[in-house]
């Protein structure tokens, strides 16, 4: 889609775009990848630790411990978002904090906080899924298609 957009531009616009791209400071891709790897890895390690703790101290099976583990990670993410820390962490870590479940919680809670001033129903309620909504929509669509394929080809009966 991005390519189509560029093709629609006039030659002058394309030339200017190239020029502007050349002049703007590049994103430090390698550094961003490294940071994302480290921070994303740390978050996953934390999650693993929480799951182990649930299994050891609350006498849960691995499967049972999965849901409360995610809940704890989400709670931590929401608290950090409300405290104004998560966006600063996200600026440093990039995909490291965006990809894990904590990123999803941040997308929901930041939108909820942002639109609180417009009211509880029309503000927070209506705008909470502003960023996270597309994840749910395309997640559901993808799940439907996979489910359909599974039904047609009869895998797993």
């Amino acid at each position: 889609m991005a390519n189509n957009k560029i093709k629609k531009l006039t030659p002058v616009q394309q030339e200017y775009r190239q020029l502007a791209l050349k002049r703007q400071p590049a994103r430090p891709v390698a550094l961003n990848c490294l940071r994302a790897f480290v921070v994303g890895g740390l978050i996953c390690t934390l999650g693993q630790g929480i799951q182990e703790a649930f299994m050891r101290f609350a006498d849960m099976t691995q499967k049972e411990a999965a849901a409360p583990t995610v809940a704890v990670l989400i709670a931590i993410s929401v608290v950090l978002t409300a405290a104004g820390v998560y966006d600063k962490l996200g600026q440093w870590a990039g995909a490291g904090t965006a990809v894990p479940v904590t990123g999803f919680a941040n997308a929901m809670s930041s939108a909820a906080i942002e639109h609180r001033s417009e009211g509880l129903v029309l503000g927070t309620g209506a705008n909470m899924f502003k960023l996270a909504g597309s994840v749910i929509v395309f997640g559901t669509v993808a799940a439907f298609i996979i489910g359909l394929l599974r039904f047609i080809f009869g895998y797993g009966g």
């Binding site: 966006d87 996200g90 995909a95 965006a98 809670s109 930041s110």
Partner: peptide
Amino acid sequence: EKQFRYPTEYGSQKPPY
């Protein structure tokens, strides 16, 4: 930020420019 980009507390990475 709220109107044109993302919520202020959203942890997206802004480019250096």
